[in-house]
Amino acid sequence: MSIIYVLIPLAVIIVCIGIAVFFWAVRNNQFDDLERQGYSILFDDDIDSPKQTKESNAVKQTDERN
């Protein structure tokens, strides 16, 4: 059982790191808008108009995903 004398302080340190990260996030307005950022992953990067084929492929892929 003596392992808990190591594990619990370790857990406490990790919790402290977690809280530090959380405070940082609150200070940097990460919780201001919970609707929007969830969608960013769905969008492709810029579509270059001349490369039409690439664009349609990308679109088809996203269609399948939906």
Partner: peptide
């Protein structure tokens, strides 16, 4: 913001 920090801290510590 201050509420959120206090709430987050209380939540995480309560779990532990």
């Amino acid at each position: 913001k201050s509420y959120l920090k206090k709430l987050g801290l209380a939540g995480i510590m309560t779990m532990q």
